[in-house]
Design a protein around this nucleic acid. Structure first.
Lengths: 218, 218, 218, 218
DNA sequence: TATGAATGAGCGTTCATTCAT
DNA sequence: GATGAATGAACGCTCATTCAT
C-alpha cells in the first residue's frame, strides 16, 4: 500500500528529457514482452542503454516507472479526445462518440501487449486510478460533451452519466482491443461500443431514485 | 507466459477438503490485505494454520492459489445468476437484469479488497480470463436469457450482445463496488448499471457493418 | 559425513524380501532415469507401489537405498567373477582375465544409466568404498587368481598387484561401458582392458622400492 | 540432464577477478569439508566474505561453481603435463611417464578432500567429462608423447593407447592420492602407476580384432 | 552526473522424515 | 504392519536499491 510515486525530478534539460523517454520506452517494451513479473529495473536500464544508477536518478523506484507509463497513456487518451472535440464542430453526439471510440481502439491496438499488462498488472496502489490529472481532464471533457448535447440525452444526472460512459468505453475498448472475442470483426466490436454508449445515453429517462431499486425481484 | 495452473490433487476426504478451504480463505485474506506482491506462500500457510508443505500438496504453486480464487469467484457469480434465473419465472428482462446486478454488487461488496486485487492483479496467464468453465456457463445463461426476451431487444447479433452485456455488467459492477466514485449512492450506481444494460439492449437496431465505421451510420 | 547406513531389518519373510526387492528396483529405475538429484523417496515409494512409510520400514534413510544398490552391484560383480573362476579350470591367466572383463562389461552395459549414476554420485560417506564385504571377497578372489598364476606374473608384490589390477579393470570397464569414447568398438575397448591388465602383470619385473622412485626426472 | 553451465560474465577488472578467485576458493573449501550435498551457495558466499548476489553475478548457478572447479583442475593437470614435456628433452618415455605421475600425485595430495569430492560428486551433466578444452589438450599432449616414443611402444592403435593410458593414470592416481589402500607407501603406489602404464604400453603387440574376443587370441 | 558492482532480505519450492490412523 | 497426509528446515535464486568511484 504505497502512495503513487512521482518522478524524482522533472528534467529541464533536453538530454535528461530524452533519457527519461528512453527509459520509459524500454519499460514499455519489457513490460509488453516479459509481463510485469518478468520486468526488472536492471533489465530496463540495460535495454535503455543506461545504468541502473541513472534510472534511479529519474525514478525513485520501480513502481514510479509503471505509474509514469500509466500517466503517459492517460495523456495520450486525453489528446485523442481533445483532437476529436476540437475538429468538426458540427458533428452530432454519436459521431463524436464514434470518433472517440475509434481513436481509442486504434491507440490500444498499437501496443496491445503493453496495454494488456498496464490494464491488468497495475501494482497495488491505494489511490483510485482516476485521480491522475489527465484522468480528471478526460472526465471534464466528457462531462462537457454531454452537457453540450444534453438535448439528445435521456440520463438526467450528467455526472453519473459521464462516469458510466467513460467506464463503458474503457472496458469495452479494452476488451475489443486487448482480448478480442473470437468471431467478431474489429468493426463490429467498435460499433458495439458506440451502441452501448449511445444506448445508455439515449435510453428512456429513468430517474436515479434515492431508494432501493424498484421492482428488481430477489 | 504460464499456463493456468491446476490444483494438484482433488482431495476426497473431508479433512482434506477443509484444509483446502482454509488455505483458500487464508489466501483471500492475505491477498486482500497485502496485495499480490505482498502475498507469499509461507505467510498464507501460517495464516491458514498449515505447513507450507501441505499447501503445496494441494496447489502446485502460488499462482494456482490465485487461479483457484478466481475460479471460486466465477462459480459464485454463476450461482448468483442461476438463482435469479430459476426464481420468478414471470419476471421481465429488466427485472432480471436488475436482480442480477443487485446480486453481483452484493457479492462484490462482501470482500471489496479481495475483489479489487482479483480484478487487477490477475497473474499474467496466457489464456484469456473468460475461458474458465464457469465463465462459459455464465455466457450461456446470459445468451439464453437474451434469446428468451429477444422481442424486447434491439440488437440483432445475440452473441455480440451477450458479450457486450456481460462486459458492461462486470466493469460497472466492479467500479461501483470496488472503486465507488464519490457523490453517488450505491442505489444510484446500481440503477446506472441497469440503465446501461437496458439502454444498450433496447437501443434502435443498428446493423453491424463490415466496413470501417467512420460516420457511424444509423 | 555419515557412516554407511545398513538396511533397518533383514526381512525373513518372503513377502518382505519381495517388498525390499521392489523398492530397490524402483530406486534403480528412478536413479537411472532421473539422476541422483531427481531421485526422492516419495517418488521411489510411489514407483514401487508402496507407501513411504513402508519404505522407511526397510531402509532407515535415503542413503541406505543407494548403499544397498551399491552392495547389490558388488554382489553381482562377485558372482560374475566366481562364475569365471569356477568354470574351465584349465584356462590360462589371460583367458580368465578376458572372461572376467567381458562379463563385467556385459553387466555394466545392461543398465548403463544406472551405473553411471552409481559410479559418480555416490553420496559422500566417509568410509572408503571397498570395505563392503563383497568388495573384500572380490579382492580375495583376484588375489588368489594371481597367486595361482604367479609364474606368469612379473610383479612381485601380489597384494599391490591385486589392488592395481582391480582398479584398472574397474576404471576401464566403466569407461568402456558407461562413457565409451567415440571411434572404438566395444571389442576394441574390451581387448584394451585385457591388454592393460596383462601388460601390467607381465611387465618386466620391477621391484617396488621403499625409496623414492628411481630415475623419474623432475 | 543439464548442460554444463558457464560463468556468467568474465570479469575484466582486477577486483572482480579477485572476487571470482575468492569465491572459487571458498567453494573448494566448503566442498572439501562438507561434500556436495552439504555445500550451499549462501555458505559459500559467506565463507568468501561476499554476498550471495555477488556470487550469482559471476556464476549462473551452483553447478557452475563446481564446473569451474573442475575446469581449474583440468587446467592445472594440463600445466603439470606441459611442464614435464617442456623440460628435459632427452628423457625416456618411462622417465616422462614417471614425472607426470609424480606431479599428478603431488597435485592431488595437496587437497585430497576436495579432489575426492570432485572425482565422485561431479554433478550430473550430460556431456562426458573429458570434453573440456583442457582435457582435449591433455589428450593431444599425451598422444603426441606416445607418437614421439612409438618405437618403444607395443600398442599399434595410438589413439586407443592414449585413451587407455590417461584412464589408467587418472584412476590409479586418484586411488593412490585420495583413497590410498593401507599397507603401501606413496612411493610404491607411484611406482605401481608407472608400472601399469609402461606395462600396458610395452606389452607384446596385439591386434584389435573386430570380432568378439572370447579366447583373447594373441 | 553517471556508473555498475555489490548488497542481502526475502520468496518459492522441495523432500526426507514422522506418526496418527 | 501399512498408510500417506502433514511437517518445516533449508536451499537456490532474484532483484530493488545503494554508494564508492
Amino acid at each position: 500500500m504505497t502512495a503513487i510515486p512521482q518522478p524524482r525530478k522533472s528534467p529541464r534539460q533536453l538530454r535528461s528529457q530524452q533519457t527519461v523517454d528512453t527509459i520509459l520506452q524500454a519499460t514499455a517494451s519489457i513490460l509488453a514482452t516479459h509481463g510485469y513479473a518478468g520486468t526488472n529495473t536492471n533489465l530496463i536500464a540495460e535495454t535503455a542503454g543506461v545504468s541502473v544508477g541513472s534510472l534511479y536518478q529519474y525514478f525513485p523506484n520501480k513502481n514510479a516507472l509503471i505509474a509514469a507509463l500509466h500517466n503517459r497513456h492517460d495523456m495520450q487518451m486525453l489528446d485523442v479526445i481533445d483532437d476529436v472535440l476540437n475538429s468538426n464542430p458540427a458533428a452530432t453526439l454519436e459521431e463524436r462518440v464514434a470518433a472517440i471510440v475509434q481513436a481509442m481502439l486504434h491507440a490500444h491496438m498499437l501496443e496491445p501487449a503493453l496495454h494488456r499488462v498496464l490494464e491488468r498488472e497495475f501494482p497495488l496502489f491505494d489511490t483510485p486510478r482516476d485521480h491522475s490529472l489527465a484522468d480528471q481532464d478526460i472526465h471534464r471533457r466528457m462531462r462537457h460533451l454531454l452537457e453540450h448535447h444534453k438535448a439528445e440525452i435521456g440520463q438526467q444526472d450528467r455526472d453519473l452519466a459521464t462516469y458510466v460512459v467513460l467506464r463503458i468505453m474503457e472496458s469495452l475498448v479494452h476488451a475489443a482491443a486487448l482480448e478480442p472475442p473470437a468471431g467478431f470483426s474489429t468493426e463490429q466490436l467498435e460499433q458495439a461500443v458506440v451502441d452501448a454508449v449511445m444506448g445508455y445515453l439515449g435510453a428512456p429517462k429513468r430517474a436515479a431514485p434515492r431508494k432501493p431499486a424498484k421492482g428488481a425481484g430477489r
